[in-house]
Simulated assay, not measured.
Amino acid sequence: MSSALDTLPKIGAPATRALNNAGYTTLRQLAGVPRAELARLHGVGLKALGIIQTALEEHDLSLG
């Protein structure tokens, strides 16, 4: 059975594509990644970053 950490949260197609293209395919991989690094990806905006941060916090993790 897969964990919520093994998938990306629902953040929209452009942001999901941007993360996948950058090599991030799971929520677990985003833990500790600097927020500014993700914000530089085309398609990843403030809303997506907020959703990612909230999803990480549910597992006692956060962005860098």
Rank of each mutant, 00 (worst) to 15 (best):
M1S: 14
S2T: 14
S3L: 14
S3M: 13
A4K: 10
L5I: 08
L5Y: 06
L5H: 06
L8H: 03
P9E: 12
I11T: 11
I11S: 03
I11R: 03
A13T: 15
A13Y: 01
A15Q: 02
A15C: 06
A15W: 00
A15F: 03
R17L: 14
R17F: 12
A18Y: 10
A18E: 08
L19H: 02
N20M: 12
N21Y: 09
N21D: 15
N21Q: 15
A22S: 10
A22C: 07
A22I: 08
A22P: 02
G23W: 09
G23C: 09
G23P: 06
G23T: 09
Y24A: 04
T25P: 00
L27V: 08
R28W: 05
Q29E: 15
Q29L: 11
Q29A: 14
A31W: 01
G32P: 12
G32V: 03
V33S: 06
V33L: 08
P34T: 12
A36G: 03
A36H: 11
E37G: 02
L38W: 01
A39V: 04
A39S: 13
A39M: 11
R40A: 15
L41N: 04
L41H: 07
L41P: 11
G43N: 09
V44N: 01
V44K: 00
G45Q: 08
L46Y: 07
L46H: 09
K47E: 04
K47V: 11
K47N: 07
K47C: 01
A48N: 07
A48S: 15
L49A: 10
G50C: 07
G50P: 01
I51G: 04
I51H: 03
Q53A: 13
Q53G: 03
A55R: 06
E57Q: 14
D60T: 09
D60L: 14
D60H: 14
L61N: 04
L61G: 07
S62Q: 15
G64H: 04
